[in-house]
Amino acid sequence: MNSSRLQIIFFIFLGLIVSSFTFTLFNLSPISGLLTLFSGGFGSFNALAQTFVMSTPLLIIGVGLALPFQAKFWNIGAQGQFILGEIFATWIGLELASSLPPLVVILVSVVFGFVGGALWAIPPTLMKLYAGANEIITTLMMNFVAVYLLTYLLAGPMEGAEAKVVHAPSSAPLPAADLLPHVGMLSVGIFLAIAIALILYVVLKRTNFGYELMLIGQSPDNARYSGVTVRRNILLSMIISGGIAGIAGMIMVFGSTQALIPQFFSDVSTSFGYVGIAVTMISSLNPLAIIIISIFFGGILNGSYIMEAIYSTPIDVVISIYGILMFFTMIGILIDFSKYFRRKKVK
């Protein structure tokens, strides 16, 4: 077990080296590119604080996705569920602001974020369970619908008064009192995220529910024969997964952006729902590994902003790094070196 873990780390390292060659396109040596990337992400306390802000949504979305992925139900729709969580939480936050104490506002907004994300996750799940529509496609299509819904809301019903003046779409800002508090330099968001990850670790590894999801993932038919209610389990996993992505949206607004802002397909910095998929897949669905990988990924994302400022490399560099790391890790998990060595000995 330990040796295979070492092997995965080795392959992640290998993937980093391969992906660093993209820097040569911008007249940067791979080594100095990587160094800038990492010092930008992890080099100072300020950098680390910013890295945690970016890791928070990745971590929450990532652990949420681990549930349906465990059942081999591919929820590609975390991006849309995240957006709906943002919308619901911001709406209720603005409605209740200044009439209720901040703690109550925050708690109610968390619940609304969960509900928003879960509502967006339910239709594609039902379409799969009762009509056999492929969930990869349906959840993905829901993402695009969510993006346009958000664009519409920010252009009309939820447009803030200031946004109208400066022509930059945004909702009204949340009052400072209702934002998530800070502990030292860190927003409490990252601690909430780690708490959610630990809870889901217990759910996945120590409860019947987690075990049944794993059975469904291995073979839905066998699971059914051994008395597992496949539909109920998958629906529940998707409600939790979507809801948690919605909570990530709530934390994004209340802890970082402070207002509802638009999303663009091409904008990597707001594509947390897609990057979360990569985080979960690299981590082999283990919530503890997801904590580490999401901080790692958040750091690279943060570092690539620094690189954009210094060397004007595009943010897309970070997406290719994610992809290459995913590919290398996947191969690293599957290659069984011991097999090759043993064969040599026999011959």
Partner: peptide, 18 residues
């Protein structure tokens, strides 16, 4: 699905980089 997602990310990123 995992491999396809990785290919998607690599193509998405590298195309933007080029």
């Amino acid at each position: 699905v995992v491999s396809g997602t990785a290919i998607w990310f690599i193509g998405w990123g590298i195309s933007g980089v080029i």
